[in-house]
């Protein structure tokens, strides 16, 4: 992939790009983006895949003023302006899905089709129960268990990572907390704005996702006109990592159709 940086509103954003064809914005989950992630190759078939690292993730800067998903949505709309992208398809995973949904409520006309993979962003359940288990309060091994179909394979092992990789992972997690701490994993306004979305939208979920439940996704999808849902077997919250081929096939089938 080709790496570049672009300064937007004083924030230096790291971007990876590959392929030619329909411009497609890929917005990563809370664990960040790496060009060698397993889903990248499959997603570039006939597409120009553009993968920014969110502010405070990867090598992207984190300006003092930035502290919520809404800020990133604005930044990425400007990114599209700067890249001359009047209209894109968009894929967002987890908080990336939240950013994508937010962008599509702000400028619905600029999005062709949208794929939201285990997205956060809305609160649809009762006040006395979390919609999404609190990843900052649960023990780490429990978060892994909830997040993956195969938690043993995907358990966090600092011994396998270099210092530089760990620094990125730690910073990613810190930024994630900054963005989604309160209200936890949602913006109360988003629910009321989703009616603006005009893109055909696919909601995707790993069958074993213990963080984004099937019921949550159904309630979320019901807020977007004409949205459909697909479930990826033998995957948790990160189907793009656990089942990259099935993930890419489902996403492309929807986007290319």
């Amino acid at each position: 992939m080709q790496r570049s940086t672009i300064a937007i509103a004083g924030c230096e954003i790291e971007m990876h790009e590959q392929g030619a064809g329909t411009p497609t914005l890929f917005l990563h989950a809370g664990n960040g983006f790496r060009p060698d992630d397993p889903y990248v190759e499959a997603l570039t078939a006939g597409r120009r895949l553009i993968c920014p690292s969110h502010p405070g993730f990867g090598e992207s800067a984190l300006p003092d003023w930035l502290d919520c998903i809404d800020d990133i949505a604005h930044l990425y709309l400007e990114l599209m302006d700067r890249l001359g992208l009047t209209k894109v398809d968009i894929i967002g995973c987890s908080i990336g899905g939240w950013i994508a949904a937010d962008m599509a409520t702000k400028s619905p006309e600029r999005f062709g089709k949208m794929v939201l993979v285990g997205p956060g962003g809305v609160k649809t359940g009762p006040a006395d129960r979390l919609d999404i288990p609190d990843i900052f309060v649960l023990p780490a091994n429990e978060v892994t268990r909830l997040g993956f179909h195969d938690p043993v394979k995907w358990a966090f092992d600092p011994g396998k990572l270099s210092d530089a990789e760990l620094v990125v992972a730690l910073r990613n997690r810190e930024t994630l907390a900054l963005l989604v701490w309160e209200p936890y994993m949602h913006n109360p306004k988003l629910l009321h704005r989703l009616q603006r979305v005009t893109s055909p939208t696919l909601f995707m979920r790993g069958a074993s996702d213990g963080l984004i439940s099937a019921a949550y996704l159904e309630r979320y999808a019901a807020l977007v006109k004409g949205a459909s849902i697909v479930t990826i077997p033998e995957a948790g919250h990160m189907p793009h990592f656990e089942q990259p081929a099935a993930f890419a096939a489902a996403a492309l089938k929807f986007l290319d159709y």
């Binding site: 900052f136 309060v137 649960l138 023990p139 780490a140 600092p158 210092d163 760990l166 620094v167 730690l170 910073r171 997690r173 810190e174 994630l176 907390a177 900054l178």
Partner: peptide, 20 residues
């Protein structure tokens, strides 16, 4: 541990040292 070290409370370099 999840209460003793919430993300962002300690600087990244300190967390790195702890992971090591």
């Amino acid at each position: 541990p999840q209460y003793a070290n919430p993300p962002g409370y300690s600087p990244v370099q300190a967390n790195l040292a702890m992971l090591r």
